[in-house]
Simulated assay, not measured.
Amino acid sequence: MSIADSLAAQPVLRTPRLTLVQHGPEYLDEVMAALQDAEAMKLTGTRTEFTREQVLAHLERLVGADERADFAILDESGAYLGEVVLNDLDDDNLAMNYRIGLVASGVRGQGFGTEAGRAVVEWAFDTVGIHRISLDVFSFNPGAQRSYEKIGFVVEGRARDTMLWDGEWVDSILMSMLATDPRP
Rank of each mutant, 00 (worst) to 15 (best):
V137F: 13
I100L: 11
L102S: 14
L164D: 09
Q36T: 15
Q10P: 00
G113T: 11
L13G: 05
Q36P: 03
N141S: 11
L35H: 04
V128Q: 02
R99G: 14
G45H: 13
V120W: 01
A65R: 12
A144Q: 05
Y27P: 14
L35Q: 07
V154C: 11
K150D: 12
V55L: 03
E156F: 15
L13S: 04
E76F: 06
N93I: 08
E39L: 10
P142D: 08
E115V: 03
D91C: 08
R47L: 12
W169H: 07
G82V: 15
R61V: 04
R61W: 08
L89N: 11
E26H: 12
V31D: 04
P25E: 06
N97P: 00
N97W: 15
M32V: 09
A33N: 09
V121I: 13
M96C: 15
E49Q: 11
M41G: 02
R52S: 05
G113F: 12
R183D: 13
D92F: 08
F112S: 01
G64Q: 02
P184V: 07
I151R: 01
G24Q: 05
V63Q: 05
N93P: 08
E115M: 01
P142L: 06
A57N: 15
A9D: 03
A69E: 03
M32E: 06
S134V: 10
L164P: 15
L81M: 05
D91H: 13
D126T: 02
A79K: 05
V107A: 10
T127H: 11
F71C: 00
R118K: 15
A65D: 07
I133Y: 07
P11L: 01
Q54L: 02
E76M: 14
V31M: 13
V170C: 03
